[in-house]
Simulated assay, not measured.
Amino acid sequence: MRFRSDPFVLALLLSVITAYLFPQWGVEGSPFPTKTISSAGIALLFFFYGLKLSPDKIKKGLNNWKLHLVVQLATFVLFPLLVLPFYPLLKTTEQHTLWLAVFFLASLPSTVSSSVVMVSIARGNIPAAIFNASLSGMIGILITPLWITPFLEQAQTDMDFGSIYLQLVIEVIAPVILGIILQPLGGKFAGRYSKQLSFFDKSIILFIVYKSFSESFHSGVFSSIRWTDILLLIIIALSLFFVAYGIIYLISALLRFNREDRITALFCGSKKSLVHGTVMSKVLFSGMSSGGIILLPLMLYHGLQILLVSIIATKMGGESLVSEQKDTDDRP
């Protein structure tokens, strides 16, 4: 079988390389308003999703309780349980810090924007993806600290995540609702320019990747970590992703999910939010001198999950188009 490179995957790699060579463009204080561009892009992205959705489809998606249960249990139960058994094996302070960093990653909610975009690219259940990604973000504000605080030397209880709720409302919930309200007027527009909107979705993902890696490279978080540690964390991140992805796939098969629901379960249930992780780490690990190391597994996983899921999503989306085209050709 001949390998054919995917332009979007290559663009993702180029975004990471650009972030390494020119991190100053994507960090706070840059002449480019990266934060504003990112927030506005995500809001527009979800607004266009709202335009594509009819109230009947949304109602159908929200009533799929089995799918929602699988996604949330995978996010907040399966992932932590995959990491928790290794805790008794820790012997040194360094091992404890690295394990805590990985466990923090495992306890985080699913990412919102990229999960929905990838589900869209793979032609999955978009209403259910929006619902689960948004719900995961809100649940994670409570669940993640409950998982982490027992393993901290000094647990902090004065947590204020009001800004996260506000960001979720402004960038996700409100744009989707507005799009749904305007769907009778703009639904045909969204359908007519679906290819252009898909290009916009991918562009936002590329920008988020660049911005995230720029901040990582600029902060110098990698300078205090040995290459062997990074290699080990990459292996752990890959293992965590594929084991969780495989278990979710088996559960989806046992529950006989259709293709769209299976895609949503796989993509929403296997991803972790860099945004939530960054904010929560500032509160949970503010007293730790190695706080920067806590974010390293998350940043590695964040990059790997986008690269891996983009490959899978693009392949699934292509297969769906071929199948639809075949069905059209077979009609009399």
Results as ranks from 00 to 15, higher is better:
M159Q: 12
S134R: 04
A128T: 09
D158F: 01
L142P: 03
T149I: 11
T144W: 03
S136E: 00
P150W: 08
A128P: 08
A155Y: 05
D158M: 09
I121H: 01
L152S: 09
S136D: 01
L146M: 13
F151G: 03
P145V: 06
G124V: 06
Q156S: 14
W147I: 00
Q167R: 12
D160I: 10
Q156P: 01
Q167W: 09
I141C: 09
G140N: 03
M138D: 10
T144Q: 05
L135F: 12
A155F: 03
P150K: 13
R123F: 10
I141M: 14
T149H: 06
T157K: 15
I121F: 06
T157M: 14
E153N: 14
G162A: 09
G124A: 09
A128N: 12
D160G: 10
M138C: 11
T144I: 03
N132Q: 05
S136C: 00
G162V: 03
I143N: 00
I148S: 04
L166P: 00
F161H: 07
S163I: 13
D160R: 10
I164F: 11
S136A: 13
A129M: 07
T149C: 01
F151E: 04
A122V: 10
F131Y: 11
Q154W: 00
P145G: 02
L152N: 07
I130M: 14
T157Y: 14
Y165S: 11
T157F: 15
S134E: 04
S163Q: 12
L152T: 03
Q167T: 13
I126E: 07
Q156Y: 13
F161E: 03
L166N: 14
F161K: 01
Q156N: 15
T157E: 12
I148R: 00
L142F: 12
N125H: 12
Q167I: 13
G124S: 11
G137I: 04
F151N: 05
I121Y: 01
L146Y: 05
N125E: 12
F161G: 06
S163V: 15
